[in-house]
Amino acid sequence: METDDRYMVPGLVRGLVALQAFSQEKKDLSVSELAEIMGVNRSSAFRIAYTLEHCGFLHKASDSRRYALNSKVLDLGFTYLSGLDLLEPSRPILQRLRDQTTIACHLVIRQGTDIVFVDRVQATGPFTSTVGVGTRWPAHATVTGQQLLADLSDDEIRELYRDHQWATFTEGTPTGIEALLARIHEIRGQPALVSWGYFNPAMAACAAPIYRLSDNSMIASVSVSCPLGGIPQAEFEGRIRDAVIAAAHELSRTLSLNNAQP
């Protein structure tokens, strides 16, 4: 999207960059680390962090010299998710899918070039999922992301990945736009995709799309995952895949019925 720099607020942009810097791997950051991430001096970074703390989006970590996300950040996420009308109807369907498969089940959406895990039902078997709500993975490198990207036209995908920095995770990861488009042409329209070590060499996953039936647009994905070999590959690509497809179809129908009610 083209922007007019006259209307940009640099301090707000830097504050948002600071909030996005926190992750599962970087749960707390020092002022110096924030300054480097935002590309400002330490004094400016301190003022931005202080403002975010005052507004409730950051808090001081245990040693008082580092900052961590505060719970107010969740308010923004939950407000956004509630507007999707996905979480409430999806929860019982994810729970039934988990009971059928015994492995972790997830609800996933795409935001730009990332996928975001917006709900999780933990496994009942011995292998628990370490993927939490809010986890972001690169869409181009995951079967779930490729599935959600397949709802876009080739031109839309080219624009989305213009000037993209391509990260590689396994031999199967597309390393450029042409490779990504070739992969999407291959998988577009499939009812489900199975990853057998495709993104994480130690993990198996299966994802099926959720559609808004009124316009047949893809709005999310249901996925399951477990350690590679936790379930025999033939069973994973058969029974587990069928259960994931059935859950995605059920959620698509449920969302359609809910939206049709006066």
Results as ranks from 00 to 15, higher is better:
217 S>M: 14
135 T>W: 07
135 T>C: 13
243 A>P: 11
219 I>E: 05
116 V>M: 10
157 I>C: 01
192 A>N: 10
164 H>Y: 13
183 R>E: 11
133 V>C: 06
234 A>G: 06
227 P>A: 03
137 W>N: 14
201 P>N: 13
237 E>W: 09
186 E>A: 11
184 I>E: 01
189 G>I: 09
244 V>T: 10
196 W>C: 00
165 Q>I: 11
117 F>T: 15
211 Y>T: 14
235 E>G: 02
150 A>S: 15
163 D>L: 07
153 S>L: 14
126 P>H: 09
142 T>P: 01
151 D>I: 02
136 R>A: 07
206 C>N: 10
202 A>H: 13
236 F>K: 12
106 H>R: 06
133 V>D: 07
110 R>K: 06
191 P>L: 10
177 I>W: 07
175 T>H: 01
159 E>P: 04
172 G>L: 02
132 G>F: 08
138 P>F: 12
162 R>Q: 08
194 V>E: 08
140 H>A: 07
129 S>I: 00
185 H>G: 03
172 G>R: 14
186 E>Y: 11
217 S>T: 15
176 G>Q: 07
160 L>E: 07
172 G>H: 08
215 D>R: 10
167 A>M: 09
131 V>N: 09
108 V>H: 05
162 R>I: 06
133 V>K: 11
103 I>L: 05
105 C>T: 06
162 R>S: 09
176 G>D: 15
123 A>C: 05
100 Q>G: 10
232 P>M: 05
125 G>W: 02
239 R>A: 08
196 W>I: 04
102 T>A: 06
201 P>R: 06
161 Y>I: 04
159 E>H: 13
105 C>E: 01
157 I>S: 00
231 I>A: 03
174 P>E: 05
230 G>N: 07
218 M>D: 05
156 E>A: 14
232 P>K: 04
210 I>R: 12
114 D>S: 13
105 C>D: 00
187 I>V: 08
190 Q>M: 12
131 V>G: 14
197 G>L: 01
243 A>G: 10
213 L>D: 07
188 R>V: 02
137 W>Q: 15
199 F>A: 03
233 Q>T: 04
217 S>P: 09
110 R>H: 02
213 L>N: 09
194 V>S: 12
172 G>A: 03
182 A>R: 13
151 D>A: 12
151 D>H: 02
221 S>K: 04
190 Q>Y: 12
